[in-house]
């Protein structure tokens, strides 16, 4: 427990590693996620970001090291257990059913019901109302909760997914590349909702390969390269350029720049 006071961080990763057979996918990952802060996980393709998400989301179990939730070591056997512990994951493209109305998507798998026995029914009125309210609280302006999710833009969809996770009491919100498929403006919108979730006291894990998206919103940066940590930095200790250089593999990038230079004859 170093840094921000005596309170144990929401999530504390200590020397976490994961092997698939003989392949070391992840090794020696140490970082923290605090309530009301954004921890960014940066890395190029194949750096181990997905493996890290899967460990936190309960899809995989770590081979080495431990994950502490509120200071207590935990081990999830299934995604449902992670969800019940308050760790919600928003996957890049698998969060919503395009042909279903927003309010149906919002409550999918957790539908409020009314009545008893065979007359137990989906309380559609309440679902619509709560959806509208929850989205408004996050500052998301939806014209009509009855419109299919497919008519929303990619950014709006991510935003609705974030609002859904926050509404259902997520304490830790894992976002898998929420901005990667989006244009600059849309990405900005999503980042605003990430900040919004942070301000409501949620600990956010933002996974991205874009340091320009991560830097403005992040409080802590974990840089991964080929399954190993290149360090976990507080914002004060690292600049955006350093982050970019680290991510791209530093020396490798210099070499590339050199190779790509026009030959000066």
């Amino acid at each position: 427990m170093t840094g921000g006071g005596a309170v144990a961080p929401l999530l504390d990763l200590r020397d976490v590693g994961k092997d698939y057979g003989t392949v070391v996918a992840l090794d020696g990952i140490t970082t923290t996620v605090r309530a009301g802060e954004v921890t960014c996980v940066l890395g190029d393709n194949g750096a181990g970001k997905s493996t890290l998400i899967k460990i936190l989301a309960g899809v995989h179990q770590p081979t080495r090291g431990e994950v502490l939730l509120d200071g207590t070591p935990i081990r999830f056997g299934a995604p449902r257990e992670a969800l019940d512990a308050g760790i919600a994951t928003v996957y890049q493209d698998l969060a919503m059913i395009p042909l279903m109305a927003i309010w149906r998507n919002f409550f999918l798998g957790a539908e409020p019901t009314r009545g008893r026995g065979p007359f137990r029914r989906f309380d559609a009125g309440q679902a619509r109302q709560v959806t509208r309210g929850a989205l408004a609280e996050m500052g998301i302006d939806i014209r009509d909760p009855d419109q299919p999710v497919g008519t929303l833009s990619g950014g709006e969809r991510q935003s609705v997914a974030i609002a859904r996770a926050v509404h259902f009491g997520a304490r830790v919100l894992i976002l898998d590349e929420p901005t990667s498929a989006l244009g600059v403006k849309q990405a900005g919108v999503v980042l605003r909702y990430v900040a919004q979730a942070r301000d409501r006291g949620v600990g956010v894990v933002l996974i991205t390969h874009n340091p320009h998206h991560a830097y403005p919103v992040g409080d802590r940066f974990l840089v991964l390269n080929r399954g190993r940590s290149l360090g976990s930095f507080a914002k004060a200790d690292v600049s955006r350029d350093e982050l970019t250089r680290l991510m791209a593999g530093g020396a490798e990038l210099d070499q590339l720049a050199h190779e790509l230079e026009r030959p000066t004859a």
Partner: peptide, 10 residues
């Protein structure tokens, strides 16, 4: 109007 119906669509 039921949860099951929502699951069918999903």
């Amino acid at each position: 109007r039921t949860r099951f119906g929502n699951w069918v669509f999903a």
